[in-house]
């Protein structure tokens, strides 16, 4: 049995023809090769879209771009966990490998999901530094290199949605904005120019569905493919919103 497993890889893929269709599963078998990953396997299925029992089917639909774990596109649920498919090595996965879409988000088709809510959230938290324009103004401010390093860490966030999928408080049942956008707000609050709008961002996070919906399950920090210390920054934002609340009460 083990011998056979070395030569082929079996996938059980949860498919769905459209947003309102019923999900179903199909089994695929592809030849094994060293260093094979899930995206490469799906590409293999594209080249020969035939199920294990010989039925010719439409190739599996999914999203991927860079295959280097920087674009965030290929997030899906692999053996129960949200992660990037491009760096999910077959050798490290238990077979048969179950692939499913991240159902925290609306499914478009098969493994393709609609993550536009995450980009909308970035609008909500005012995820940008308010500069006057792209023209020359003067020298950019000097920054504390340690703070810059923290910013660099957070700025790796590729909006993949792993933390949202893993978070029990994010999903259709809740309006929680999720860990990634919350921590992005902190990123802009760290920047010497971005912090001018800190108050706005914090007040947004104090609204319904903001950071207060965090239930401290701390799955996010485990799920983050970029190892961003999400819980640490969530606690920091918690601290900041509490201070902001006091300011809101006593400064006006």
């Amino acid at each position: 049995m083990a011998e056979q497993n070395k030569q082929t890889v079996t996938f059980i893929i949860e498919r769905q023809d459209g947003p309102d269709s019923k999900p179903y599963t199909q089994e695929f078998e592809i030849p094994y090769r060293p260093a094979l990953n899930v995206v490469a396997s799906l590409m293999e299925i594209q080249k020969n879209p035939v199920t294990k029992d010989g039925k010719k089917v439409a190739p599996v639909v999914w999203e991927c771009n860079c295959l280097e774990k920087v674009c965030g596109a290929c997030m899906m649920v692999i053996n129960g966990r949200a992660r990037q498919a491009c760096c999910a090595l077959i050798d490290e996965l238990e077979q048969p490998i179950h692939l499913a879409p991240a159902r925290t988000f609306p499914v478009i088709r098969d493994l393709l999901i609609d993550r536009s809510v995450m980009f909308e959230s970035l609008k909500r938290i005012q995820g940008w530094v308010e500069i006057d324009g792209t023209w020359e103004v003067k020298d950019a401010p000097i920054q504390n290199p340690y703070t810059a390093q923290t910013a660099y860490e957070i700025s790796h966030c590729m909006t993949c949605g792993c933390c949202l999928e893993a978070c029990p408080n994010v999903g259709p049942q809740s309006d929680f904005i999720g860990p990634a956008p919350t921590v992005q707000a902190y990123l802009f609050n760290l920047h010497p120019l971005g912090k001018f709008d800190k108050e706005k961002r914090l007040n947004t996070l104090m609204e319904k569905g903001g950071i207060t919906s965090c239930g401290n399950s701390q799955n996010c920090v485990q799920a983050c493919p970029k190892n961003i210390k999400l819980t640490t920054y969530l606690a920091q934002v918690n601290r900041d919103v509490n201070k902001q609340a006091l300011k809101n009460i006593f400064n006006k």
Partner: peptide, 16 residues
């Protein structure tokens, strides 16, 4: 409590 979809099956960490 109604806002949670519990997922300890997939994410069996202590804090979860």
């Amino acid at each position: 409590a109604l806002q949670a979809k519990n997922n300890t099956g997939s994410y069996g960490y202590a804090r979860n």
